[in-house]
Write a protein that binds this DNA or RNA. Structure first.
Length: 580
RNA sequence: GGUCCCGUGGUGAAGUUGGAGUUCACGCCGGCCUGUCAAGCCGGAGGUCGCGGGUUCGAGUCCCGUCGGGACCGCCA
């Protein structure tokens, strides 16, 4: 199957069963070991592995030269068998070497040693970097994941529909990349942040089950888990509840995990409320403990002023970590807590006799200490961290500290998939308008049990929005959408969006809903993030063939570049001089 | 927009209190070598210490700026 006109086998293929066959291999020179005038070993490499070729040392071949070698597969002498190599039982003898191309010495070793090389050097010569086993493994894993997702979606009756890359600019959400129109100078297309509009209209159009492995683009600052362009499994379904969506998307994610050779188990469901209470974040990493513990009632009648009257007091136990955190580190942690909005951070080291070592130990009564010790299961050597504040702040600060202190690296299993459901409909209040701010997008269907609270108690309305989380990474999110114009009007009214504004901003999207929009909902998850975690990589650049740097540059092609004045003229664009 | 870290032959690192571009490993070039597989041995070449300015008798080292790379915050409905 892998043979071509130029080769009979690939470099990782040959085994004892091939002994005696004449074969032709093609590939790159991995290493050359010379032993005098008559003998040299050349390790020939392709993406499948290496094969040792025994050649006459008068043949001049160098690292990364491209060769075609024809020879006879032979057993190695018993003492020369290499157990660390899959092909180590055999070698190619009586070799005829054809140099297909020469090569300059590579700027970095084409091996795992390049893991230590500065990333910009790897990115400048990405075509060499990708020759390495690690990148080959990651890109091929990515292909398997894509393939498994496609298969899982198609088995469930989803239809792949391609949506446009040149779309209207919409004012909401992430910053967009815009593309000037030549035919209408002064007008612009946007590159899609997601196929959101189109996939919902495909439901109106009766596609029923849509999916696409879609490229999405957002002009926001880049991070270890964010690139300008990224791939999503994008899907939408008609006549469903959120459980139907979870089942369908879950099948695709679990199929992807299995394609990566894992046994993913089940996807657990927890509510947003529970996630915040137990883990302090809406994307919990459930691989480790140190969960948040409720302490408000313990300090109901406390003498300690920092805790007295606080609406929410919670704590975590950094088990056995008392020695790890000196005064300096604890001060840094306190600063971090303050940056996140806490008034302070109380830390307590549990001493050998069970008493607390802490600047505030004297304010904590014996009874409070006993209850704290019991609730947090504190043992000598533990470090206890307590925050007292508004419920949301208490949860968020401790959740972040929990991750800082105890979160294992991504490549350490197990893999814990979960759905976080019942997100709040609104998060916070817009300072300028006094209106509630939507938590997801304004087309999200409220929870049916809470619809009656929309006007009277909006901050306690749950939505039918949900996230898929893996080991503390948000893989994606989705929702059941609003398909009823009256309900949509109520939501817009709450957000302070009048009919005219709604028409102007969302008309092209909402008007089609008048023509028979079915109940529908959907989901999208990031394939780059999923593959990174499955590959054990901390950074999505490691699973992207040609990624951009944090400043949005492609170091290999030098994009972005200025363009010719003539090109700008044609588009009716004039570039301002750089700011002084 | 902000905070922090990094920048020394092709690659990775060390470089002390500011005292000659010094050192180590890999790679590269040449030589030796018939069983290596991180081959070995001998020899050699290769640097505007990212760039600019300042302090100083003297700067890889200290200060300011700038460029490039990274982590994070903001941002990502």
């Amino acid at each position: 199957m892998s043979s071509t006109t130029m080769r009979s086998h690939q470099c990782g293929e040959l085994r004892a069963e091939h002994i005696g066959q004449q074969v032709t291999l093609t590939g790159w020179v991995a290493t050359r070991r010379e032993h005098g005038e008559k003998l040299a070993f050349v390790d020939l490499r392709d993406h499948t592995g290496v094969t040792q070729c025994v050649v006459d040392n008068t043949v001049d071949v160098r690292a990364e030269w491209v060769l075609r070698v024809t020879g006879v597969v032979a057993a190695r002498p018993a003492e020369s068998v290499n157990d660390r190599l899959p092909t180590g039982a055999v070698e190619l003898q009586d070799c005829a070497v054809e140099v297909l191309n020469v090569a300059e010495p590579p700027p970095f070793p084409v091996s795992e040693r390049a893991d230590q090389v500065a990333e910009n050097t790897r990115l400048q010569h990405r075509y060499i970097d990708i020759r390495r086993e690690r990148m080959q493994r990651n890109l091929r894993l990515r292909a398997s994941v894509n393939s498994a997702i496609r298969r899982a979606m198609e088995e469930q009756g989803f239809v792949e529909v391609e949506t446009p890359m040149l779309v209207p600019s919409t004012p909401e959400g992430a910053r967009e990349f815009i593309v000037p129109s030549r035919q209408q100078p002064g007008s612009f297309y946007a590159l899609p942040q997601s196929p959101q509009l189109f996939k919902q209209l495909l439901m109106v159009a009766g596609i029923d089950r849509y999916y696409q492995i879609a490229r999405c683009l957002r002009d926001e600052d880049l991070r270890a888990d964010r690139q300008y362009e990224f791939m999503q499994l994008d899907a939408e379904m008609s006549f469903v509840t959120q459980d139907d969506v979870h089942t369908a998307i879950g099948a695709a994610v679990l199929a992807a995990a299995r394609a990566a050779g894992q046994d993913p188990g089940e996807i657990v469901k927890i509510t947003w409320q529970e996630a915040m209470n137990r883990f302090g974040v809406d994307k919990p990493d459930m691989r480790f403990g140190s969960e948040l513990v409720e302490l408000t009632d313990v300090f109901a009648a406390t003498e300690f002023k920092a805790f007295a009257g606080a609406p929410s007091i919670k704590g975590i136990n950094a088990v056995g970590q008392a020695d790890q955190y000196g005064r300096n580190k604890l001060d840094q942690m306190t600063d971090r807590a303050k940056q996140m909005g806490a008034k302070g951070l109380v830390w307590l080291r549990v001493a050998g006799d069970g008493t607390f070592e802490s600047p505030v130990a004297k304010f904590i009564s014996d009874d409070e200490r006993a209850q704290l010790t019991a609730r947090l299961a504190a043992e000598p050597g533990d470090l206890l961290l307590i925050v007292a504040d508004q419920w949301a702040t208490t949860c968020e600060v401790l959740g972040q500290l929990r991750n800082d202190i105890a979160r294992p690296p991504v490549h350490e299993g197990p893999y814990r998939y979960l759905w976080v459901i019942d997100f709040p409909m609104f998060v916070g209040v817009d300072e300028a308008t006094g209106r509630p701010k939507p938590g997801h997008h304004p087309f999200t269907q409220p929870h049916p049990d809470d619809v009656h609270l929309l006007e009277t108690d909006p901050m306690n309305v749950r939505s039918q929005a949900y996230d898929l989380v893996l080991n503390g990474w948000e893989l994606g999110s989705g929702s059941i959408r609003i398909h009823q114009p009256e309900l949509q009007a109520r939501i817009f009214a709450l957000l302070g969006i009048g009919e005219e504004e709604a028409q102007r901003k969302f008309g092209f999207f909402l008007n089609p809903f008048k023509f028979g929009a079915p109940p529908h909902g959907g989901f999208a998850f990031g394939i780059d993030r999923l593959v990174a975690i499955l590959a054990g990589e901390e950074n999505i650049r490691e699973v992207i063939a040609f990624p951009k740097t944090q400043s949005g540059a492609d170091l290999m092609t030098n994009a972005p570049t200025p363009v010719a004045a003539k090109q700008l003229d044609e588009l009716g664009i004039r570039v301002l001089p750089p700011k002084a």
